[in-house]
Design a protein around this nucleic acid. Structure first.
Lengths: 151, 151
DNA sequence: GTCAAATGCTTGACTATCTAAAACAACCAT
DNA sequence: ATGGTTGTTTTAGATAGTCAAGCATTTGAC
C-alpha cells in the first residue's frame, strides 16, 4: 500500500526546503505589496523594473519574463496607457518595437526599489560574516547557472 | 538633484538579495513546472497540497492561500470537476463546506511532491554541515515569524 | 422563543495574466 | 523577386484574482 518511492529525505533537508518555501512566500508577498503601493501589479512591476535599466524589444522582454510575446503586448499596453512606458521604433529593424520607461516610469521604478524592504530588513539580522556565509551557500546551491536569464 | 534616500546598501547585501531573488524565481518556475506535469496550475497545486494533509473549510483555505473566499470557490470547482477534490458537509455547522482531497487527489498530490526536485537537487550540492548552517541563517533571517501562516 | 447581527459560501461583474493560433509587416537568403 | 523566418499584434479562451451582493445558517441579545 502506497509504497512511496522516496521517503529518503532527511529531516534537515526537509526543514531547509520549508524555510526556502517561507522565504519565497514572503518575498512574493512583499513584492506584490510594494508594487501595489505604486498602483502596479506584480507583472507590471517586474516589466517596468527591467525597462528602468534599458529599453528592450518586446521579444527580449518576453524572454526575460519567461512568457509569450503576446502576453507582453498587454502588459506594455496598460503601462503605456498610464504613461509609464512608451514604444519606440528600432532604427535598425522596423519590425522591432523598443519598449522604454518614460521619466515618470523611471521615477515609479525607483520608488518601487526603495519600497522593497525585504532587501534590507530581514538581512539586517545578520552580521557581515553571516551574510558572506549565506551568499556562498546560496551560490553553491544555485550552481553555475546563477545569474543567467536565457540571453 | 535626485537625492535618493538610500544608496546606503553595501554590495554584499545587494548580492545576497539578488541571489535570493534567483532562488525565488527558480523555486516558482520549478513549482509551476511540477504542477503542469500533473495538469495542475500553481494555484490548484497549492490548494490540493493543503487538502492532501487534511480536509479544510473553504474559509480556512482562503486564509492559508491568502486570497478571498470567493476565489477559492472557483479553484475548488475546477478540481472537483476533475474528481480530485470533493465538498462535504461539516456535521458541526451546516453553513460550512469541507473541501477534501479524493483518493485520486491524494495520489496526484503525492506525485507532485515527488516532482519537486527543487527540494533535493540543489541542496545535494551542500554537505550536512552546510545545510545546518543554511538552516540557521534562514531561520535568523526570517525571525520569529517563520512557520506561522495566520491561523 | 424571536429577531437581528454575524458568519460561511456562492454568484455576478469586472480586470489582469497567461496561452495558442492566426494575421501582418519587415527582414534576409537565394 | 520569392519564400522562409522573425517580431509584433490580434483574437479567443482559460485561470486567477478582487469586490459587492445574496442566501442560508448560526449566534446572541432580549
Amino acid at each position: 500500500m502506497a509504497t512511496h518511492k522516496r521517503p529518503r529525505i532527511d529531516p534537515l533537508t526537509v526543514e531547509v526546503v520549508e524555510l526556502i518555501g517561507t522565504v519565497v512566500a514572503r518575498y512574493h508577498e512583499e513584492y506584490e505589496e510594494a508594487a501595489a503601493e505604486h498602483a502596479l501589479t506584480g507583472a507590471q512591476a517586474r516589466l517596468l523594473s527591467l525597462l528602468s535599466l534599458e529599453p528592450l524589444p518586446m521579444r527580449r522582454l518576453a524572454q526575460k519574463l519567461r512568457c509569450e510575446p503576446s502576453n507582453v503586448t498587454g502588459i506594455v499596453d496598460r503601462l503605456e496607457t498610464r504613461g509609464l512606458v512608451e514604444r519606440r521604433p528600432d532604427p535598425a529593424d522596423r519590425r522591432v518595437k523598443l519598449a522604454a520607461a518614460t521619466a515618470e516610469g523611471r521615477r515609479i521604478a525607483g520608488g518601487l526599489r526603495d519600497s522593497l524592504d525585504f532587501a534590507r530588513e530581514p538581512l539586517a539580522e545578520l552580521s557581515d560574516q553571516e551574510r558572506l556565509a549565506l551568499r556562498d551557500l546560496l551560490r553553491r546551491m544555485l550552481g553555475e547557472s546563477a545569474g543567467t536569464d536565457g540571453g
